[in-house]
């Protein structure tokens, strides 16, 4: 599938990707490389993985990273409760120690966590490693090993080799620098806030029933709002909420009802000081420009 076809397929699922991103995804699929997507919060990094899984008609396996993430949550863990019960039962049945051991450290007692699950699928799943920059450096190093070998060693069992190579998508929003080693292993795409046309296309794809005039106003308003000095710049998800709120209130023109517009701003502005900064006058000025 060439990158333009992929772009269309993504668009059919309601995800508007620009040329750069579509090409990066296309190459990640063609070359079998992990794809690292970086960008501000709310530009649709995570959503891309979800839509990609749809397009590829495969499962999405998600690993949310956080500081202190360890093997028992990311890779596998033994089902201790079952093991304990099983040992007790075996003692009553008079089973020998050796056979008990072989039994309780078998597949049956293994709890799969996302990474192990991802390499044991029949069909290549999309493995989303979300917010990799939140995990610590040790985990990053471990991940590198898995991403290059696609095999996991469980000491009690054996080395488990991938039955299918997952399509790996990593996301980061720059809370810390990632290691060069990880960056070099991945293809890279930087996703920015979309430009006017792209964002309009996104809005049309997600809310088909919105009027063209209002859609244009919404996008204009949100785009100029992003240029204001805000603590938390509204992302695409916020823009869609905003559009939903406006059409929910039955507003057809942004400048028509300042009170309602101000009320709808709750969907865009998420901190106290941002709310205070965007007063009715500022909002009206932005809406006036957008109209």
């Amino acid at each position: 599938m060439a990158h333009l076809e992929l772009q269309k397929a993504l668009a059919a699922q309601g995800y508007v990707a620009d040329d750069d991103l579509a090409m990066a995804v296309h190459l990640a699929l063609a070359l079998g490389r992990p794809l690292l997507i970086e960008g501000a919060a709310g530009v649709g990094k995570t959503d891309l993985a979800r839509v990609l899984a749809h397009v590829q008609e495969t499962e999405l396996i998600r690993l949310q990273c956080y500081e202190g993430l360890d093997a028992s949550q990311a890779i596998y863990e033994w089902n201790y409760q079952r093991q304990l019960l099983s040992i007790r039962a075996a003692a009553e049945d008079g089973e020998t120690g050796r056979s008990v051991e072989a039994r309780i450290f078998s597949e049956e007692f293994l709890l799969e966590r996302p990474l192990l699950k991802a390499i044991r699928q029949a069909k290549s799943p999309v493995l989303l490693i979300d917010e990799i920059d939140r995990a610590d450096e040790e985990f990053e190093a471990y991940l590198l090993e898995i991403l290059s070998e696609f095999q996991i060693t469980v000491p009690e069992l054996d080395t488990i080799t991938a039955t299918s190579r997952p399509i790996v998508v990593l996301t980061a929003n720059g809370t810390r620098d990632l290691s060069d080693a990880l960056r070099r292993r991945c293809l890279y795409a930087h996703v920015d806030y979309p430009d006017r046309t792209t964002e309009l296309a996104i809005l049309k794809a997600r809310c088909a029933d919105i009027e063209t005039k209002l859609a244009g106003q919404i996008i204009g308003f949100v785009q100029s709002l992003r240029k204001e000095d805000l603590e938390k710049t509204p992302g695409i998800a916020e823009m869609l909420d905003f559009a939903a709120a406006l059409s929910g209130l039955g507003i057809a023109d942004l400048t028509q009802d300042p009170v309602a517009l101000q009320a709808c701003l709750t969907t865009l502005l998420k901190t106290q000081s941002d709310r205070a900064n965007i007063t009715t006058e500022v909002a009206q000025r932005l809406a006036g420009k957008a109209a």
Partner: peptide, 10 residues
């Protein structure tokens, strides 16, 4: 865009 995805890291 193809070479950009490969060569860029930040």
């Amino acid at each position: 865009p193809a070479l950009r995805a490969i060569c860029c890291g930040s």
